[in-house]
């Protein structure tokens, strides 16, 4: 176990040990170990690296959240009023205990299609900062996640922060699970209504191998409405928006639900979110 006290030390350790894995809160990784799916060798702990636990405003239009900031901090101010959808999504992650330990770095590192905060990143076009001992790069979330539990992060890289744009508009997150708390999502959606551009962006979770950004549905809405801050969405538009979103996803049947239900749930969630955005 290498307990890194700063980012540099952690990056150095990753470069020196090509079997090394990083651990932050541990809420995903320890499940893998406890369930006999992963045999850890060299571990690099990021728990004590202050740089990964900061929230900054690099410019007036961006908020940058350290990959190790626990979800419990994202549910409250100063994040909640700037990124309400992220706050809402964070509040649905696991239990309060999980939220006190887990962080965006884990959601990104694991890259499960059910990762609760990932649709928020997709809807907001978030950028992911990756750093290695020798280099650093910024990758759009759309390029970052490549499949079920797959991403472009290299073994020697650490996810350091996620940049979210601060928009003038509305954003919201909804998640369906078969329990009123502590539940993995069966289907989730994040909708962002950018009042400046008039764009509406929609991203879906748990209904495909990656998070799905509904570009065709977004375009359809743009082509058929001209939305401003004070617009009201008719039930017909909302229904059609939902129906189109549900056609853009590619869910599967599994032990948590059925593809048919997931599709249906997306149509409802998307329609309701759109109406809420302009309520």
């Amino acid at each position: 176990m290498i307990v890194a006290k700063n980012l540099e030390a952690a990056l150095f350790a990753l470069r020196e040990h090509d079997d090394a894995r990083v651990i932050q809160g541990g809420t995903d990784l320890m499940v893998e170990i406890n369930f006999n799916h992963l045999k850890p060798t060299t571990m690099v702990s990021l728990r004590h690296i202050p740089e990964l636990r900061t929230i900054t405003r690099p410019d007036s239009n961006t908020i940058s959240i350290g990959s190790g900031v626990p979800y419990s901090q994202l549910e409250i101010e100063p994040v909640a009023s700037v990124l309400p959808a992220l706050a809402q999504a964070s509040r649905t992650v696991g239990s309060p205990q999980i939220r006190a330990a887990g962080s965006l770095g884990g959601n990104l590192g694991t890259c499960s299609p059910a990762g609760d905060t990932l649709p928020v990143m997709f809807a907001l076009d978030a950028n992911i900062h990756l750093q290695s001992a020798d280099s650093q790069r910024t990758v759009s979330i759309h390029q970052f996640m490549t499949g079920v539990k797959r991403n472009v992060k290299r073994q020697d890289e650490i996810i350091t922060a996620v940049d979210f744009p601060i928009i003038d508009g509305w954003q919201g997150y909804s998640k369906v699970g078969v329990r009123n708390a502590m539940v993995i999502s069966v289907a989730s959606a994040c909708l962002v209504a950018d009042h400046e551009s008039g764009d509406v962006r929609l991203a879906l979770g748990s209904v495909g191998p990656t998070i799905i950004r509904c570009r065709e549905t977004e375009q359809w809405l743009k082509d058929n409405t001209s939305l401003t801050r004070n617009s009201v969405i008719s039930p017909d538009i909302a229904r059609e928006f939902g129906a189109r979103a549900s056609r853009e996803c590619s869910p599967i049947d599994d032990h948590r639900s059925t593809a048919q239900y997931r599709r249906h749930a997306i149509s409802i969630l998307a329609a309701r979110l759109l109406q809420k955005a302009y309520a």
Partner: peptide, 21 residues
Amino acid sequence: TVLLDGQAVCSCLVMAATAVD
């Protein structure tokens, strides 16, 4: 559940060797 640096967390998901300091 235990308190780790004042936060209630699941100790089953804390890798023990990271809980130094």
